[in-house]
Design a protein around this nucleic acid. Structure first.
Lengths: 339, 339
DNA sequence: TTGAAAGCGCTACCAG
DNA sequence: CTGGTAGCGCTTTCAA
């Protein structure tokens, strides 16, 4: 219960110096003699001093926290949780806490945002949260772009290189002899710029290769039966020899469904996840997966917000996070042969 | 960019009253005339006043935030994310933010916990995080009990009624004619009190019914092949006519595996998840699932922490969160017949 | 019912 | 290199 009541004044008295010097010594600020600094540090350690954040925040007129918003529809994708913890880590590097924004921001509309800045992950088209944040003058980094008719201007944007990776995967499939990959996308309930981009990448690739697109959507909240129906219908078309799944985890869920239709995912048919789920997809050598490396992604987003807050970006920035491809054993073998 | 610079002093000057009255009026404190209160509110609204939390926190010596720790191994279970957002909601009701503790608390050991209290979800046996929090005098609510040789004393504990629900499900299976349910648990990497309890419930039930237990564990991070091997082996024993899966999502993953072995989950074999995954299990009428209602659970945990902080608990408390059972269509039908 | 004054713990500023 | 002073915006006495 000894919630540290030790203040810099206590340390100053203890050491017979001024609290300014103590503060400077502890924060590595000002011109303090090394010996003094060391004495202060030792005393702080000994007496169990911990800085009072409220006091510092008041004085420096910061809040000491950044906010994170993730879209309600898809929170069960593990991507977001890992991303969140990456963002925590990145925020910690800025000496800042990370607070979660409530699920229903309208519900807590009474509470104004008490943050120095915010990260909004996968904003939906015309997502009101971004607009409200900007209205209140909160610096915002979005993960993915804001789509919509009149998108709000944000301070920075970071997105994974998913379009490029999607095309690379499709090219790999082609090189391995696949001629008609089908595409499973997410429906309008989750239409982030990411969902838009991978779909566009697929359609663009099909146009370039003169492949007839075979595309369907599924709700990200879909139960097994709906997923099964959609997958079966999707692959039950002339020449379909691969399935590319956009939303996280759906390739993993599709694997058993495909097996039940007699398709062998380890040979003769390729299964791809554009956002790998750790256990069911990245952990499955039969699936080719784009690993979004969400933890690092979150760290980078927080670091970017840090730059925005420091004012070193100078105007809106767009940045990219490198996603990477982990080929299935079968695809890697086929490409090895093709080389 | 108009980061609210309006203070109660501004309001006071504007209205020609003292800042004390403004503060009291806004916070519903003291004896302020209704008319005055209304004038103050209106002015605050008009000028866009927002309270400076740092100043209030400094004055009231609070931090204005509670921390949430979730176990690193299993963060990809959607349970935790939903729980977290429930906790955010519950914390908001206490006028408190919810900050996420970093994945690797040792890594950020330099940063002392800057929170009024903490919620630790599913502490592992001898989890160091709880001890460190208590050492620093932080009030702690754990979700699940702290196991281990010398468990730290926490201020309150809340757990789902999973033992009771597990036994009820097993009794239901029995009533529907199942005579040997197998049990899929989680391995030592994730051995929370929850994992301990459901296992104990299973073994206890087997002893009571004179059923020979059939139990195996799987890593919560296991890939498809490991899960398949484990499930196949588990059900490939004399008389096994149901599979009860402890960790979230594993029943969903087992469903296709069982189908491939010729077992019909909609008839003749029952599949149970003791922690329902929203899409793959709760969304599947073929699986009997215990719904942990994680959002409400998180809200309750935060409310409990609120009581602890308010000092209204008076000594350590143990509380329970009601989980509920959603029977599969087949099980419901069988029990309907049995009644 | 209202207001004046004190002060939470810290950092910024400036004088020595 | 060090220290004194001021003050961030708020709540809490306590006096009017």
């Amino acid at each position: 219960m000894s919630r540290s009541r030790v203040t810099i004044v206590d340390l100053a008295r203890e050491l017979g110096i001024s609290k300014t010097t103590v503060s400077d010594a502890l924060q590595g600020r000002g011109q303090v003699a090394d010996a003094t600094r060391e004495r202060v540090r030792a005393a702080a350690e000994r007496l169990g001093y911990v800085q009072n954040r409220a006091a510092r925040n008041l004085r420096t007129s910061r809040v000491g926290a950044v906010g994170l918003h993730v879209p309600p529809v898809v929170r069960e994708f593990s991507f977001y949780m890992e991303f969140a913890f990456g963002a925590v880590q990145g925020a910690a590097a800025l000496d800042t806490d990370l607070v979660l924004f409530a699920r229903d921001p309208d519900h807590t509309a009474g509470r104004p945002f008490a943050v120095d800045g915010a990260i909004v992950v996968d904003p939906l088209p015309d997502d009101p949260i971004v607009r409200r944040l900007k209205q209140q003058g909160v610096p915002v980094v979005t993960v993915g772009r804001c789509l919509g008719d009149d998108p709000p201007v944000v301070d920075a944007t970071i997105e994974a290189t998913h379009s490029a990776r999607a095309r690379e995967v499709l090219d790999d499939l082609w090189a391995a002899g696949r001629r008609r990959p089908a595409f499973l996308g997410s429906d309008a309930l989750f239409f982030s710029s990411w969902a838009f981009d991978v779909r566009a990448a697929y359609l663009g690739w099909c146009a370039d290769r003169d492949v007839e697109p075979r595309l369907d959507d599924v709700a990200v909240t879909a139960g097994p039966d709906e997923v099964r129906r959609t997958v079966e219908e999707l692959v039950d078309a002339p020449g379909v020899d691969a399935l590319v799944c956009a939303p996280q985890g759906f390739a993993g869920r599709a694997r058993g469904i495909l097996a039940a239709t007699g398709r062998d995912v380890t040979a003769g048919f390729d299964l791809v996840s554009l956002v790998g789920d750790p256990a069911t997809e990245l952990g499955d050598p039969a699936i080719t997966v784009v690993d979004p490396t969400p933890f690092a992604f979150g760290e980078e987003a927080a670091a970017l917000l840090g730059e925005v807050l420091a004012g070193t970006t100078g105007g809106p920035v767009a940045r990219f996070h490198e996603a990477r491809i982990r080929q299935s054993d079968a695809l890697a073998a086929a490409l090895g042969r093709a080389d």
